[in-house]
Amino acid sequence: MTIRLGYQLPKFAYSAPAADLFPTIIAQVREAESAGFDCAFVADHFFQMATPGDSNRSMPEVYTTLGSLATATEKIQLSALVTSNTFRNPALLAKAVSTLDVASGGRAVLGIGAGWYELEHKQYGYEFGTFTDRFERLDESLQIIAPMLRGERPTFDGKWNRVESAINEPRIRNDLPILVGGGGERKTFAIAARFADHLSIACGISELPRKLDALDARCAEIGRDRSTLETSFLAFVFIDENGDHARQLQHDFLLSQGVDLTQASDAERAAATDRMFCGVPDEVAEQISTRVLAQGIDGIIINLGANGPRPGIVELAGRTLRPLVDA
């Protein structure tokens, strides 16, 4: 598995009717595939994250969505960013991602994390538990899922999960990759060091040096060569051939989150835009190259939430960023 350039589908609250939802999703992912993106990602949420005044919080179920993309694309890898471990029995999740792999001809990636959004759990009747609970559950789940993805039949009796000689067929390979997502330097990174092929680091750019040092330490603790664990950073990108338009998109997006850049202090502005990259293609490329890739991150996953559904924007982003990760 190599993910140097990923595309996370942005919000799904389009103004078009629900009947047009999947044609819009498919068009974006096909554009990403043509533009050289390695992987398309869909968030695992039950509704769109709330913004002030947002009455349409449409969010399709993640594995149904990825299944539709499996037969609508040919080359691009497909993954959740990331599956909430709390939402699914781990053996069932291994079955789901393996079935996606078969349907896509070997292009599935299991993206998984501990789960974090308490409101979803409450509204849908899932146990949220404590921070410690969720990471214990993730560790147990991967002790079941990882061998199932390799064609083994694990038996496991833990605090949270139990399986007995769990069969996982059909499969078409024994090396379906595992991506762990999160920013926790002790628990998340330790789990990634033990189980993952890829770690998608969630943090502000200013935190990256410390995060990478922590990851080095977690790998060293178990004797793993750090170079065998690929890394990426999720970036929120506002790109347009017209720089003023890109900056207006960023301004409007932040305003919808309750942040007015025209009134913000320097510190407030820095905090609000710490994971954002904005401007014409050359500006975005320079920002990502110097602020992220130069620090030792292997790849970039981008979210184009402000204008990703607009035809041509995903292609523009791919054309801008692919040379950076191929260098």
Rank of each mutant, 00 (worst) to 15 (best):
T65H: 05
G67Y: 08
A108P: 10
F41N: 00
P90F: 01
A70P: 07
Q48S: 08
A96Y: 14
G67P: 09
T64W: 12
M49L: 15
H45E: 12
E74I: 13
T65D: 07
A91H: 00
D38Y: 12
F46P: 06
K95F: 09
L92Y: 11
G113R: 04
G113Y: 01
A72E: 14
S84E: 05
T51P: 02
A32E: 01
H45R: 13
G53T: 01
V82P: 05
A32I: 07
A94M: 11
Q28N: 01
A40R: 09
S98M: 12
F46C: 12
P60W: 08
E33C: 04
L92Q: 11
S79I: 01
D44E: 07
P60F: 05
S68W: 15
F46A: 04
R88V: 03
S98W: 03
P52I: 10
A43W: 08
G36K: 04
A43K: 00
T99P: 08
T24H: 05
L100A: 08
F47Q: 09
V97K: 14
T83K: 09
M59F: 12
R30L: 11
S55H: 11
V62G: 08
A35D: 06
M49T: 14
I26P: 14
A50F: 11
L69P: 05
V102H: 11
Y63Q: 13
D54K: 15
G105V: 09
K95S: 04
S84C: 13
G36E: 04
